[in-house]
Design a protein around this nucleic acid. Structure first.
Lengths: 251, 251
DNA sequence: GGAACACTTCGCCGCCGGGCTAAGTGTCGC
DNA sequence: GCGACACTTAGCCCGGCGGCGAAGTGTTCC
């Protein structure tokens, strides 16, 4: 038995662009550090800190220390439900400036999401990993139109994908470190906001991204999170996976 | 490729107490005049006017002239869904007056949520529909003994209810129109803010509510959105579903 | 121990948004 | 026509909130 809820206060928590971006980033169920969330929201550390404090105080997210970091996560799935419900009645986000539209385009093409790859590149790479049998499983959730239900299904520790024996060999031959790390699960996935399909995250997603940067196949762009596929990367990926990644590159 | 919706703007519209109270009053689906809404929100006429203008401009409500009055109504049911979703994550609102506490009590017992039933009645009806097999599916989150960590474990499950063949027959025998309507999905659910469990919405939720009012099993109360279960309704529901709904009635 | 790092708290500034009263527009009744 | 009524627009005040830099607290690594 609860008393009458204060909708306005709840809405006010989501009514700030920075907080909304943070919560959106948390919607995949992962626990994310304060600095990563600050970067995600595009604000300074202190500013992010007070936003996160408010979200914790309101019970929307929870925090726990981890070394000298502090990780935040959504406290319960209803928060994601509320975000979805608001998205259903929200106007499309207007693009304010040309520079921003260029950046948005670049972000859609290829970006980092926390420490792994997202955007068209992340999704196409995921497709290549599945088609070549490096990863198995997924119940076909990757390809078809992944809608709201599947996004909710992406919550928590569900791991529908697995690394095959042959896949481990393939990745190792590319120099990717496929050892199971400490706490972090090897394989996870996120639902990509621009493509609405899955991309690979987890320790393996991070390891692959790391290796591609080390090989010089990827370069960090000027804006935060923007990633560029190099000439070497385009031919390297084409050879490794037998498909073209050309449309990930800028026109 | 979708442009991401501006959640913050949508939330900002609901982040004001006056606007939230107005929308809440509109949640029964009726068209209400500007002055009545100003009264409901507890603000002056001009203030209410600019709030309503913003809601119209954002497409959450629509307005139409009627004599020298102007009536406002919710533009689509998603708006009510968003309000319920926010209520599910909102902190409790302190109760200011005795009259309000009486009304809150009545609202908890049984109320309309836009055009379907909510509150204890809505939740118990949902339970009856599931237990009798009229509806199938769900992941057990409906039932009261589901603890928080169980719910977290259930993150990945699809929350999907379906109307069974037998259920359609049962409902038709009660006179409920179970035809699939135009755009609106037949079956949806909301998380009830007072009970923290699911109640039925969607076209079927609306059809059932309509039929119960037509049968005289439910009556509208004095305050907006408050609903009373009649004597006929109590015995009718008991016969139809083999369980007592007595504790939905006022003491 | 001390430097580097991650994060929070503090203090200040600027601005957006809601509230009111007063005046303007349109509609109904006589 | 004129006044009463319903509602909107205009103009103003003010509180609150988000933003940042600087300083403070706790943790890790050498």
């Amino acid at each position: 038995m609860k008393s009458d809820p204060d909708i306005a206060r709840a809405a006010a928590l989501l009514a700030d662009g920075s907080r909304a971006r943070m919560l959106k980033a948390l919607c995949n169920g992962q626990a994310i550090t304060a600095t990563a969330l600050a970067d995600e929201a595009g604000v300074s550390g202190p500013t992010a800190s007070v936003h996160l404090a408010k979200l914790v105080e309101a019970g929307l997210v929870t925090a726990h220390r981890e070394g000298r970091n502090r990780r935040y996560r959504l406290s319960r799935p209803e928060v994601a439900d509320a975000l979805e419900a608001l998205a259903a009645i929200a106007p499309p986000l207007p693009v304010t400036s040309l520079r921003q539209s260029v950046r948005t385009d670049a972000l859609r093409r290829s970006r980092t999401c926390y420490d792994h790859l997202a955007g068209r590149l992340g999704v196409q790479l995921m497709g290549a990993l599945l088609d070549t049998g490096v990863l198995t499983g997924g119940d076909g959730r990757h390809h078809p139109d992944t809608a709201v239900h599947d996004r909710l299904a992406a919550y928590g520790r569900d791991q529908h994908y697995e690394l095959s024996e042959q896949g481990a060999v393939t990745l190792r031959s590319l120099g990717v470190d496929v050892r199971e790390p400490g706490r972090r699960p090897l394989i996870r996935y996120c639902v990509d906001w621009s493509e609405e399909r899955h991309h690979l995250s987890g320790a393996l997603g991070a390891a692959i991204a790391n290796r591609l940067f080390a090989l010089g196949w990827l370069k960090h762009g000027a804006s935060p999170r923007v990633v560029h596929l190099t000439d070497a990367g385009e031919s390297g990926l084409a050879e490794a996976f037998g498909r073209s990644f050309a449309d990930v590159r800028p026109a």
